[in-house]
């Protein structure tokens, strides 16, 4: 696919197709309906993400404990890369969670997701300004997971190798660009992603506790791990 880098070709090939939202119809409250629809989508995205992670070169070689730790700390970052990428150029600055689930600022506020909206628009604007390529996006997503700073690490050397493999892939990818600062700029966008994901997790936990929104088991388990 790209420059002969096998890792990135593999990431491009295994990138999951976007999911569609299943409209919730269990309540007449439209903001609650939106929230439940979003939570159902996130739960299914998580399932797909776990399957995707297993296919990242090097991931399956990690101990089961490290695989779990990386996913538990990095899942929201990996999911938000996709949302921010899809939301680029969206009319009315919507967040595009799925092709059929686009929420503008007012809808997010009504749903209790004002904080998530603000954080994700900031991230989206950053990615938009960077003009990321699809290859860079899949690499960024894998790096976010590999770099999730899970603690404690079971086999530090294996995790380091996993990270190094992805870093090399990024360097390979950027080697042909004229812009020598490109790889560094992509790495420097990771803190904002971490910060955005933290705010997203806090927002969902607040809604779960405050509005007593029932969450799917997998989503709840992953939020709890935070």
């Amino acid at each position: 696919v790209v420059l002969g880098n096998k890792v990135i070709s593999h990431l491009m090939l295994t990138e999951p197709a976007p999911l569609a939202a299943n409209q919730d119809d269990s309540t007449n409250d439209s903001s609650l309906r939106t929230l439940l629809t979003l939570c159902d989508l996130l739960n299914r995205e998580l399932l797909v993400l776990i399957g995707w992670a297993k296919q990242i070169p090097g991931f399956s070689g990690l101990s089961l404990v490290d695989q779990m730790s990386l996913l538990q700390s990095g899942w929201m970052e990996a999911l938000l890369v996709g949302v921010a990428w899809r939301s680029q150029g969206a009319p009315r600055e919507e967040l595009v969670f799925a092709g059929n689930l686009r929420l503008d600022e007012a809808q997010c506020r009504a749903t209790g997701l004002a904080d998530l909206y603000e954080a994700l628009r900031h991230l989206t604007a950053k990615y938009e300004a960077m003009k990321l390529s699809p290859e860079e996006v899949v690499t960024l997503k894998a790096m976010a997971l590999a770099n999730s700073d899970a603690d404690p690490v079971d086999c530090p050397d294996s995790v380091q190798q996993f990270q190094d493999g992805l870093h090399e892939a990024l360097q390979d990818l950027e080697a042909t660009r004229r812009d020598q600062n490109r790889a560094g700029r992509i790495l420097m966008s990771l803190p904002l992603l971490r910060q955005t994901a933290d705010r997203a997790v806090q927002n969902f936990l607040r809604l779960h506790r405050g509005r007593r929104v029932a969450l799917h088991k997998l989503l709840l388990e992953m939020l709890d791990a935070k």
Partner: peptide
């Protein structure tokens, strides 16, 4: 492990159905 059993099951590629 007990607390994170769904993730654990999914990573182990368990053939038993996972209750999501």
């Amino acid at each position: 492990k007990e607390k994170h059993k769904i993730l654990h099951q999914l990573l182990q590629n368990s053939t038993s159905p996972v209750d999501l």
